[in-house]
């Protein structure tokens, strides 16, 4: 779960960078940057859940 979380964080970052290169208008860039941020939040959520799951197993 934690590996996937890290990969999602990186994916979100590359979505943001790709938006800058591939898009031209402000609206589409902003849309993709927000979408990339959303992917990062998903990754962060997975990392948090992975940590909680590990703690439960340890108990």
């Amino acid at each position: 779960m934690r590996v996937i979380g890290c990969l999602l964080l990186l994916s979100g970052f590359f979505v943001v960078v790709a938006a800058m290169v591939l898009m031209n208008s402000f609206q589409t860039r902003m849309g993709f940057v927000v979408a990339g941020g959303g992917v990062e939040v998903l990754g962060l959520g997975l990392l948090m859940n992975g940590y909680k799951a590990t703690r439960k197993e340890q108990r």
Binding site: L9, G12, F13, V16, F26, M30, V33, G36, G37, L44
Partner: peptide
């Protein structure tokens, strides 16, 4: 204003998406 907000969001995305991993 929009351009500045966008630039700041890109910086935050770099922090979370690249620096955290």
């Amino acid at each position: 204003r929009g351009g500045h907000v966008l630039a700041q969001l890109i910086g935050v995305a770099a922090l979370l998406g690249f620096m955290l991993p």
